[in-house]
Amino acid sequence: MMNISRLINFISIVVGGLVAFYAQAQEEQNTYILMGGVVLLVFGIYRTSRNIPSKHDNLEESFIKTEKEDEV
């Protein structure tokens, strides 16, 4: 089962994308609705990307461990 944080991320990405698409599809585009949809979309993507670990984290840790071992 999805936890609450992932569910919030997923819902904000889907709703933000739908709102932005809807605002873009109208003949008279409502800029504020389009901006709101984009902000919600970016918010969901940002929250999702915070939970993905960086590929550089493992390299720095292994470098520090080998450097400390060499000094001893």
Rank of each mutant, 00 (worst) to 15 (best):
P53M: 01
V19I: 08
Q26K: 13
N51D: 13
A25G: 07
Q24I: 15
T66W: 09
E60W: 02
M2Y: 09
S5K: 15
E71W: 13
A23R: 03
A23D: 04
Q26G: 12
F21H: 00
V14G: 02
K55P: 05
V72T: 11
N3M: 06
Y22D: 11
Y32M: 14
A20R: 03
V38Y: 11
M35H: 09
V72Q: 11
E28W: 06
S54V: 01
Y32V: 07
G44Q: 00
P53H: 01
E60L: 10
G37C: 01
F63S: 07
N51E: 14
D57I: 10
L34V: 00
Y46K: 14
V19T: 08
Y32W: 15
S12D: 08
F63W: 09
K55T: 08
D70F: 15
I4T: 14
F43Y: 14
T66S: 10
V15A: 06
G36P: 01
Q24T: 15
K68D: 11
G44P: 03
S12L: 15
E60R: 05
R6T: 14
I64E: 15
G16I: 00
P53T: 06
I8G: 03
M2S: 10
Q26H: 14
I11P: 01
A20I: 02
I45P: 10
G16A: 04
K68H: 08
S49T: 13
L41G: 03
V14Y: 01
E28N: 07
T66L: 08
E69H: 05
M2T: 10
L59E: 07
L40N: 01
G44Y: 01
V19A: 06
F21N: 00
F21Y: 09
D57C: 06
G44S: 05
I13R: 05
S62M: 14
E27Q: 08
L7R: 12
L18V: 09
E27R: 11
N51C: 00
S49Y: 13
S49R: 05
N51L: 12
D57M: 10
G16S: 04
G17K: 00
G44R: 02
A25P: 07
S62Y: 12
A23M: 03
G16H: 03
N30F: 08
D57P: 00
D70L: 15
L41E: 01
F63C: 04
L18S: 05
I4Y: 09
M2N: 13
L34P: 02
T66M: 11
N3C: 02
S5D: 07
L7V: 13
F21S: 10
Q29G: 09
I33Q: 06
L59V: 12
N30V: 06
H56K: 09
G36S: 05
G16Y: 02
L7D: 05
L59W: 05
G36M: 03
V14C: 05
I52C: 01
L18R: 04
Q26C: 08
R47I: 06
K68Y: 03
A20T: 05
K65S: 12
V42Q: 01
E67K: 12
L18E: 00
V42E: 03
F10D: 13
V15P: 02
V15Y: 04
R6Q: 09
F43I: 02
P53G: 06
S54M: 06
N30K: 08
L59Q: 07
I33V: 14
E71V: 11
Q24G: 13
G37A: 02
S5F: 14
I13C: 04
I8V: 09
K68T: 05
Q29E: 11
V14K: 04
Y46M: 14
N9P: 09
F21P: 00
L41S: 03
E28H: 08
I13N: 02
I13L: 02
